[in-house]
Design a protein around this nucleic acid. Structure first.
Length: 938
RNA sequence: GCUCGAGUGGUGGAAUUGGUAGACACGUUGGACUUAAAAUCCAAUGACCAUUGCGGUCGUGCGGGUUCAAGUCCCGCCUCGAGUACCA
């Protein structure tokens, strides 16, 4: 019979479910520990072997922490709003809620069969009204707050209005749109209420504005910067163009500095922090104002090199700037307009593709140099981005390669302001060695000195100031989608009006069609009941809209990252109907102690959630400013795709090992499940799999057909998905869990490959045989030998250290060594096997639970204290000590100890090279003071 | 281009952070048990030379350096991976 994993696993999973073994309490004498997984999007393909990697790791740690006496919160839920369900709905007409529910059921089944210790009583789903009620509420809070730079925190918009009424906006240091006009108290009070509302949008943290957005026509929606990879949409790879639209945005830029500073305080992978730092992109420089000739306006530029200001020979504006129209001379208008039109047509990808070619036109306008009053021509060019800095640059061709290329291309003069440097071939960009020349009061200064001097001078004459700029852009928050959180806003005279908390949730309405309306409005435009009755305070039929008491509701929905930006707090108090999370619960759990998830969320979810955290912290709704103390990125498990090679234009396929020139053949993917571990294709299977192969001619080699292999991301469309189900069926969940951990370090990406799974499975069988010989229990109560105790305690020590370091692969090696040694010693002593079973418990919980109960323990293993290594058992008969000699060198000695007397019997110099250094002499006597040799006598 | 990370047997990967490189596992080879297979167990397994014995030489991407001692530290390259990309 042996190790019957099927029955064991079924039995314990049922036990845990029935007894709610892993239900966490919000009050406990024990110290708390919160282990969080990034919750999955329930896709139609089900879980593949890559998903559980992080879940297994977090589960091991959670179980370990329970054994260590912590009150562990380890919840799970679903990020259940999203694009695939909606696209499926468009194709089939099925309501996304239905397919989402089906997918969740399947996910749950798969998760359950792996024996995770989740507290399912706290499950959350972002698409449930009970949950998105609070997402909508947070949106309303963001709408109702602005960022005060003086106190460096978010404050109520009402407070801002109060100040406007007293002092206008000149002296108020608040984060706002760059286009915000200045107004006095009198002006403010004289504004109409509409005008006031319009102006306040410039300050709100969730705001509506006309802005350039990334429009993806194929998906029919706008995308955030992090949803675009290499100029095409992350999902589907469709082209993206710039388009002006009135959209909701989040003023994340207000938190740029705090998001940057906060990274110093959290234990997250350095590479991830670096990505966030780059994404935030802090640069220190100066604003400089250039007076436009014959105009009362000034052009404001941002530069990181104000020290090169005397090298300016032209100005370049982004073509999208409104100012361009004002400064363009009539005789250049035609060329300018043509150029603007052309750039707008180009997709982001096309623009990126020809970075090398400078394009642009002269506007006919000039600005005046702030120090020399020289006339400087104004150009426009699409190498200048409208949404970075001020959308205008002072071009210094001698000190910036792009300006240099532009100047060369259009034959604009280049002024050299660097001492002893040639700029014949390229610009000189090295700040470190630069000495400024031909620059009036800056001549002879280094970069550092010149920076300070010029900024002082600019500030003195009011034509500029030192400033800091961030690359981080405000995040577009509107999506033209159906399957997302409705934005709780209605429109009165085209101005957004918030609903109130008591009106939430604003439920997602039913629609006939999930596509945009014929007029191009988002899918919610298809809803019949989507108007707000301000008297009745409820959603009513669109037909009733009179714009007096009944108004249209917002048609856009929120992006995928809305719900995931705060879900981890909901787990603390998932049932709370009064609050997004109860005060007691949040004060008890405080923050996530360990967060596990993929690095792909570095500049998306993991940045947005930190932003919301800081905002909610400012409002005293949350106790900490960073929500995840420690974060680990598990590496992706990759698929190994299989290819067969077709002779072009035929139905003839050639076995891989007979191919002479792979280039001559078309590679075609086949399902990896039809290929065995020797890369041989199951021909009968493949003929049945797809009709195109039914009558195909397969040219074998030595009686078999070999496929080619390539490692890539695991995905349904690449036919390389391996489901955990079959592995569980064949080897059991414990084997799967241990094998995934045994593959290598968790942070590392690796291709899936079942070749070594038998090793782990054999280990579990071997473990079983320590307890059973056939079906007879062979465990006895005899005292263990010194040797057995030593093996056990070495293993305890190693496992404890390695679990704490998340080095689970080496834990498993240690367990294997231990079991091998105990097997060869024929150990069946209960006092060895009991603690050993505890060590195994986090990794193979089913098997550990089973043998634990077989040993006659009343309680289950889950909360039993983890064993502690006893140093007394670790004294070795030979021990290696590092020692110092002459206070300078280090070498190692091996000492033989008599265990009973703890006396040194013999010492052997271990390293021959060290012996050589000692003159080839063998020491006669070692003088030893507490484990350290301090003198050697020859 | 810039930023970060990684290169160790046939394979996945260890190496107490400067101290016997290759733990553990897969694979391969040989053996035991068996009518046979499966399962299990034992042995060998970095390369080369020697193998009648001991053993010896070379080995952590490449080239230098520091050190009694380098996979580990320093300098210069090469290759691969990830992120980002006209950021002024």
């Amino acid at each position: 019979m042996g190790y019957d994993f099927k029955n064991i696993e079924k039995k314990w999973q049922a036990h845990w479910a029935k007894n709610q073994t892993f239900k966490a309490e919000n009050h406990s004498e024990k110290p708390k520990f919160y282990v969080l997984d990034m919750f999955p999007y329930p896709s139609g393909a089900g879980l593949h072997v890559g998903h559980p990697l992080g879940y297994i790791a977090s589960d091991i740690y959670s179980r370990y922490k329970r054994h260590k006496g912590f009150n562990v919160l380890h919840p799970q839920g679903y990020d259940s709003f999203g694009l695939p369900a909606e696209q499926y709905a468009i194709q089939t007409g099925q309501h996304p809620a239905k397919t989402t529910q089906e997918n969740i059921n399947r996910y749950r089944e798969q998760l359950d069969q792996m024996g995770f210790s989740f507290d399912w009583s706290r499950e959350v789903r972002t698409s449930e009204p009970d949950f998105y009620k609070w997402t909508q509420w947070i949106f309303l809070l963001l709408f109702d707050h602005y960022y005060c730079k003086t106190t460096d925190r978010a404050r109520p918009i009402a407070h801002l209005v109060e100040r406007f009424e007293k002092e206008g906006n000149r002296a108020i240091d608040a984060v706002c749109d760059t286009t915000t006009p200045q107004f006095s108290v009198g002006e403010w009070n004289a504004f109409s209420s509409e005008k006031k509302q319009e102006l306040l949008l410039n300050y709100r943290l969730a705001y509506l504005s006309e802005s350039e957005v990334n429009w993806c026509a194929d998906l029919g929606t706008v995308l955030a910067n992090d949803e675009i990879i290499n100029g095409v949409s992350e999902r589907g790879g469709y082209p993206v163009t710039k388009k002006k639209m009135r959209q909701w945005s989040m003023r994340i830029g207000a938190y740029a500095e705090r998001l940057l500073q906060g990274l110093e305080r959290i234990d997250w992978p350095e590479s991830l922090k670096e990505m966030q730092r780059n994404w935030i992109g802090k640069s220190i420089g100066a604003k400089v104002f250039f007076q436009i000739e014959g105009h009362d306006k000034k052009i404001e530029v941002f530069t990181t090199r104000p020290d090169t200001i005397f090298g300016v020979t032209f100005m370049t504006l982004a073509p999208e700037l409104e100012l361009v129209q004002e400064i363009t001379h009539s005789d250049h208008k035609e060329a300018v307009d043509a150029y603007i039109e052309e750039t707008q047509k180009r997709t982001q990808r096309e623009r990126m593709a020809d970075v090398k070619n400078s394009t642009g036109v002269f506007t006919g306008g000039y600005v005046l140099h702030p120090f020399t009053q020289e006339r400087i021509p104004i150009w426009i060019g699409d190498y200048v981005l409208a949404d970075y800095g001020t959308g205008a640059v002072m071009a210094v061709p001698c000190g910036d390669q792009r300006d240099y290329d532009f100047a060369k291309h259009f034959d604009i003069p280049i002024k050299n302001i660097f001492k002893d440097v040639s700029i014949e071939e390229e610009a000189f960009t090295d700040k470190g060695t630069a000495v400024i020349d031909h620059s009036d009061f800056l001549t002879g200064l280094s970069y550092k000195e010149a920076m300070k001097t010029v900024i002082d001078q600019l500030e003195k004459q009011g034509s500029g100031e030192g400033t800091i700029n961030y690359r981080l852009r405000d995040a577009i928050f509107s999506r033209q989608r159906y399957w997302g959180e409705p934005i709780p806003i209605y429109y009165k005279n085209k101005l957004p009006q918030p609903l109130e908390l008591k009106h939430l949730p604003l439920n997602l309405p039913d629609v006939e069609k999930y596509l945009p309306t014929p007029e191009g409005a988002p899918p919610l435009g298809n809803a019949e009941s989507w108007a707000w009755d301000t008297q009745e305070e409820k959603v009513v039929d669109n037909k009733l809209i009179d714009n007096k008491t009944i108004f249209p509701l917002e048609l856009n929905t929120m992006p995928g990252w809305a719900g995931s930006s705060w879900y981890f707090y909901r787990y603390m108090d998932a049932q709370n109907t009064e609050n997004f999370v109860g005060k007691d619960a949040v004060n008890y759990w405080k923050e996530v102690d360990l967060y596990l998830g993929g690095i792909e969320h570095a500049t998306g979810h993991l940045l947005y959630s930190r932003f919301w955290q800081k905002f909610l912290f400012d409002l005293n709704l949350l106790p900490v400013e960073e929500y995840a103390k420690k974060l680990i990125n598990q590496g992706m498990i990759l698929g190994t795709s299989a290819f067969i090679y077709r002779k072009p234009g035929t139905q003839t396929y050639i076995s891989k090992d007979k191919l002479e020139d792979v280039e001559q053949f078309e590679p075609i993917r086949v399902d990896v499940n039809l290929v065995n571990s020797a890369d041989e294709l199951d021909l009968t299977g493949v003929r049945k799999w797809q009709p195109q192969f039914e009558k195909a001619d397969f040219k074998l080699s030595n009686g078999v057909f070999k496929v080619g292999r390539e490692v890539e991301k695991m995905s349904k469309s690449k036919y390389n998905v391996v489901n955990p189900d079959e592995i569980c069926e064949q080897y059991g969940a414990d084997t799967l869990r241990m094998y995934e951990m045994f593959l290598g370090p968790i942070e590392q990406a690796k291709p899936w490959n079942t070749a070594g799974i038998s090793g782990v499975h054999n280990f579990l069988k071997k473990y079983w045989r320590l307890f059973f010989n056939d079906d007879e229990l062979v465990v006895h109560d005899q005292e263990p030998s010194k040797q057995e105790l030593k093996i056990l305690h070495e293993t305890i020590k190693k496992i404890t250290i390695d679990i704490e370091n998340f080095s689970f692969n080496t834990c498993i090696s240690a367990l294997m060594i231990c079991v091998n040694e105990l097997t060869s010693l024929k150990t069946h002593s209960k006092s060895i096997l009991s603690p050993l079973t505890l060590l195994l418990s986090p990794f193979a919980p089913h098997l550990a639970s089973e043998v634990w109960s077989v040993l006659g323990n009343e309680s289950t293993i889950d909360y039993v204290d983890f064993p502690i290594a006893n140093e007394a058992y670790l004294v070795e008969d030979t021990k290696t000590y590092p020692v110092s000699f002459n206070g300078k060198m280090r070498f190692t000695l091996e000492l033989s100890l008599d265990l009973d007397n703890v006396a040194i019997q013999e010492a052997v110099l271990q390293d021959s090279r060290s012996a050589e250094y000692l003159g080839g002499k063998t020491p006669k006597k070692w003088i030893i003071v507490p484990n350290k040799i301090i003198n050697i006598v020859f």
